[in-house]
Amino acid sequence: MQLNTFSAILDTAISLETALGKRYEAASGAEAEMLYRELAKDGRKRIRYLERIRREMVTEMILEPIRDLTLPDALTGLLSAEAASPPDPAKFETLERAMADFYNKAAEKIGLDEAARALRKMAKGSNRRAERLAALAPG
């Protein structure tokens, strides 16, 4: 998927966070349920933040085409309807790392300093979430 506009990046980020949140919510009964619940709650805050960025940082004057940014393969499955396998902290951790990577790449391409800062902040958040998940992983 080509992410060639400001809205394409932000809409995709919101869709990814929404899909990820749903997977955390669906992971009830899992060993790490408390953490998943917290991450789902935090995810809703992150979505509100992204929505605000999308509303407030769209600067019509310099909405220039964005090149060479696509949705990474590691995240394409996230947008499909259901998770194929049961929840697993290690898999969630991989997804969060991929999200962080996506946000950092998008920050480089988005062309607006303020929006780039916001995306990098999202990346940091994803990495922090990944670390919490890593702490649950065996060994």
Partner: peptide, 27 residues
């Protein structure tokens, strides 16, 4: 602000511009 998205989408539907441009306009 509350109805930002709905207004932007309405702009696209009746004017034809892109959602980026419509959001920029509402801003």
């Amino acid at each position: 602000e509350e109805y930002f998205e709905d207004i932007a989408r309405t702009v696209v539907q009746e004017n034809g511009k892109t959602i980026d441009e419509a959001r920029g306009e509402v801003r």
